[in-house]
């Protein structure tokens, strides 16, 4: 497929391209909107490749990332966003936290 959005070596992650989101607000919204079993599946696939992703993307200075590399980086940022849900809270909604929509990020 010539329309791949990710670097050649990471085309197997193409089914998760919807997680490639450039802002924290978008990543939080996606986290909240996604059923837990899908979050767990995404976590499993991406975290297994995380070390390879970092080694691959570390060849570029952070401020000079090619577009497909940036999309892969944004996908890894989504993994960071949801990793605690799967690894710690085991739950999409964390107990006793203020409502996410009131806690507003600015980047």
């Amino acid at each position: 497929m010539s329309t791949s959005q990710l670097p050649e070596a990471f085309r197997d992650l193409e089914p998760y391209i919807a997680w490639s989101l450039s802002s924290e607000r978008e990543r939080i919204a996606k986290r909240i909107a996604t059923p837990m079993d899908e979050v767990i599946e995404f976590h499993g696939k991406i975290s297994a490749r995380l070390e390879a992703i970092i080694i691959y993307l570390n060849q570029y200075p952070y401020s000079q990332m090619p577009e497909d590399g940036q999309r892969l980086c944004d996908m890894a940022l989504s993994l960071v966003e949801i990793s605690n849900l799967v690894e710690m809270y085991k739950n999409p909604a964390v107990l006793n936290m203020i409502e996410p929509e009131r806690f507003v990020p600015y980047e």
């Binding site: 570390n58 200075p61 952070y62 890894a76 960071v80 966003e81 605690n84 964390v94 806690f103 990020p105």
Partner: peptide, 20 residues
Amino acid sequence: NVGQRLAQEWTIGQLRDTLM
């Protein structure tokens, strides 16, 4: 690099959840 950026984002997120 991305490794450093992702580590920063993890730290930010961990603290953010605590602050929430």
